[in-house]
Design a protein around this nucleic acid. Structure first.
Lengths: 201, 201
DNA sequence: CTCAATTTGTACTGATCGGTACAAAGAGTC
DNA sequence: GACTCTTTGTACCGATCAGTACAAATTGAG
């Protein structure tokens, strides 16, 4: 009882999320979690009776809610699709601290045999659907909008991987700028057919 | 001594690589490694006196060598850049089994505090440099070639993440087709400026 | 205050971790 | 067969894991 306790559930969840993000599910040991939250095991298991798995599930749900409110809903509901799209880019850059932070969803997506597959799937498909909706509203044909959304949602994950591998936030920011251009210009989408110089398999 | 031993080092490394790929560095426990290789702890530590870390380092070196020979060198040295590029796509699709397998380099890139940062950095930058070289040879200006290479190398990682999250190899194959088009068409590269509808920050 | 309910620290559990020690088993040479 | 030298299985090590038990401390209501 020496440390922090009466600050509500959210800051605790935030601290836990940070541990998961930095160390992954496995290495997020209880000792790390107690250290990061300032809570003893007793308190932690009092907050999360189902232990580590519940912590991770709630962290993922928290992330999902944040993206839903901050990004997906604006993308789907704004009448100015460009505003929603630019807001997505800004919020994404801010959330991932210009690529210095990692996407916990992406990290856990690579882990086999976690019980969070459903949550992870929902996160990515919600994002993709929301972005495709905005792209369609901005004038792109539905098919091209879907393709661009898939490109950008996956591309953001890849940019985070590469930026982290090279410890270079510039990579992430450059990719984000490139995605902005891709959405703004009509030419980059699904062109006719694969050109002759690359025989599509 | 009941099981396999006289097959050389390579198949053992391959089995170890598979464990690392499926479970990550942490969850790749010695018990899993002994099970996958059919070797006891004694044999494993006889092959790899420095234990798990040496195993991982050799696996990464093995991967690097494979990509170097199969993809990077052809990209850099072929006189027909399109042939090298198409070979890259085909080899990549084959290596990752159309997106069903994960990139161990990308997975470990997301892990903090592994001692493999140098190897991982080299893998990605070698790939990017080789691809940019081929793109440049195919007629793109150097700057655009660099940008496209960064887009595609990171994009492949993202495609693997998303394909794995959704258990949908189609995502990976669609992204790869999209990258083929990006390289083949001149229009998708670095255009003039960010358009007015998206005020670049 | 009193008393019940909640929150907390801590000592424990059994399991598993990576790694070591070492003797038995194999293989090669003579 | 007798002698090395390498390869192998297995018993063990201390450390750490997630999780539990539980009593002391705290809180809140009356």
């Amino acid at each position: 009882m020496t440390t922090s306790s009466r600050r509500g559930r959210d800051p605790v969840l935030q601290a836990i999320a940070e541990v998961f993000r930095r160390h992954g599910y496995e290495r997020a040991s209880l000792s790390r979690l107690t250290a990061a939250t300032g809570l003893g095991k007793g308190s932690l298991y009092n907050f999360f009776p189902h232990g580590k798995e519940q912590m991770a599930a709630e962290v993922l749900a928290h992330i999902q809610r944040w993206f839903e409110a901050e990004i997906f809903v604006p993308l789907k509901e704004t009448e100015d699709p460009w505003a929603g799209i630019e807001r997505m880019f800004r919020s994404t850059e801010q959330y991932f601290q210009s690529g210095q932070k990692i996407c916990l969803m992406g990290l856990m997506a690579l882990d086999e045999e976690t019980p969070f597959g459903t949550q992870i799937r929902a996160y990515f498909s919600d994002w993709q659907i929301a972005l495709a909706s905005a792209a369609h509203k901005s004038g792109k044909p539905q098919e091209e909008a879907n393709d661009l959304a898939e490109e950008i949602v996956s591309g953001i994950q890849g940019a985070l991987v590469l930026a982290h591998a090279q410890s270079d936030a510039g990579i992430f920011l450059r990719r984000m700028q490139s995605f902005r251009r891709r959405l703004a210009f009509p030419c980059g989408g699904l062109q006719s057919e694969t050109p002759g110089c690359l025989q599509g398999r």
